[in-house]
């Protein structure tokens, strides 16, 4: 799904409670959210249940989506991550104070477009990383593996893991500038 298409769908949900737009977003993201949760250690049933929660939260919190601050994928990732912490780790998720923005400071469309394009470039940059580095980043974000568990699984010492993750992010940064 093109990033700007996703934004249009989400804005239709936000502004018009458009259930057809919701169905389109659901078709693309629900199977990915389920995959993300299963990679994080949830079984089929729990992942399916949590996916419904995540997608329902997307509907209810659509008014909080700001295309100048996050892509649709990033925003859904944060909802799925928080649901995972809640459901799988039974912990609370402290969130930073929201930056205040009211109707008077609707995000600048040019700024929003730029952020969406940047997010698309980030996706491409990750796709271009050497497989080992990409694998490490993905495991870190699936979150069920700590650094030491990743070390145990790959047979790599902890220092190497940390420096590879740093290297991967450094390369990501270079690709982004």
């Amino acid at each position: 799904m093109d990033d700007t298409d996703g934004v249009q769908l989400l804005l239709r949900i936000r502004d018009h409670q458009d259930s057809a737009a919701f169905a389109d977003l659901f078709l693309h993201y629900a199977p990915r959210v389920k995959a993300f949760l299963m990679k994080s250690g949830a079984d089929h049933a729990v992942a399916e249940e949590c996916t419904q929660d995540v997608m329902a939260t997307l509907w209810h919190k659509a008014h909080m989506f700001d295309p100048g601050r996050a892509s649709v994928a990033t925003w859904i990732f944060t909802i799925a991550r928080n649901r995972r912490i809640d459901a799988l780790r039974k912990a609370r998720r402290p969130e930073p104070e929201d930056l205040l923005w009211g109707p008077e400071d609707e995000p600048d469309p040019a700024e929003a477009l730029e952020l969406q394009q940047e997010s698309a470039r980030l996706g491409q940059a990750i796709a271009l990383l050497p497989e080992k580095q990409r694998d490490l980043i993905e495991r870190a974000y699936f979150g069920d593996l700590s650094h030491s568990e990743i070390a145990a699984q790959t047979g790599l010492p902890l220092g190497t893991i940390k420096s590879r993750l740093r290297l991967a992010l450094e390369r990501l940064r270079q690709q982004m500038t």
Partner: peptide, 15 residues
């Protein structure tokens, strides 16, 4: 945003 990209890359699991 890296997390968002990781989510976008996940191969879909049938719901």
């Amino acid at each position: 945003a890296v997390g968002g990209a990781v989510l976008e890359r996940c191969s879909a699991v049938k719901v």
